[in-house]
Amino acid sequence: MLNLVLQVLLNGILLGGFYALVTLGLNLIFGVMDITNFAHGDLIMLAAYFSFWAAKLFRIDPVVFIPINAAIMFVIGLIFYRVALKPVLRAPAYNQIALTFGFSVFLQSLALVLWTSDMRQVEVPYASIVFQIGPISVGLGKLIAFGIAIGFTLGFLLFLERTKLGGAMRSVSQDSMAASLMGIDVSKVYLITSGIASMLAGVAGSLVTLNLYIDPFIGGDLTLKAFGVVILGGMGSYLGMIIASITLGLAEALVGAFLPLGGSLAPGIAFAVIVAVLAIKPTGFFGK
């Protein structure tokens, strides 16, 4: 029984690590621009397709492709800001929601037209290698995804704390007007934030191809999970986001493994945890 519990806990933590990376871009856009990007999961889907085609056409490993994918997605993020986000920066929240939701549907339709709805997966032999550590086992694919996800998440937090640009982003997220008066080019910060958020989606997209089948509709579920994590952790809080990601991963794993019909209940129970936390602390773990 103890072995089972350990295995379930490990599975939950690995899942949570991936959720953290998926959520990072969404949290960043919300924290800095105060916009909830419902197309974030679809940007991950787009990046996953780039990774798939790089592997299929040029035999580039998804992990090796991460920097290229991140660069491509950074540029897409810049274009996304110029074309879509900038015009609605000062618009009412529901206009912003309509825009990002519309962009989500557009990306899905585009992927459907370009690549059909066939499910695709990159075959990387090492993704199926399994390590046995005492009584518990762990797949290399998930371990790589977890390691890169945690690495990027922590690296990004360091970037926010230690760099001038990161400081500017934090300033704008706290008070864009004050930041502007302090000489920070807020518009430029917004532009780069959109690029970085999309770049993080690029990293997540590459990792998705290691462990999952992809189709044009995988983004919806990822957005929903990321949205849940952001709410649970407190919108805009990075520490809260990490704790919420692990909480969500553990909740899904524990409910799935130990409750009757847990496989069906897990997604619902995970969101019930979110409801329960919000009932006690409406701003989430670390929201203000």
Binding site: N11, G256, G262
Partner: peptide, 17 residues
């Protein structure tokens, strides 16, 4: 028997059961 939600990204819990 054990049910699961189709389209999930991980079925480890069902597999462990």
């Amino acid at each position: 028997g054990e049910s699961f939600k189709t389209g999930s990204s991980d079925f480890s819990s069902v597999v462990l059961k």
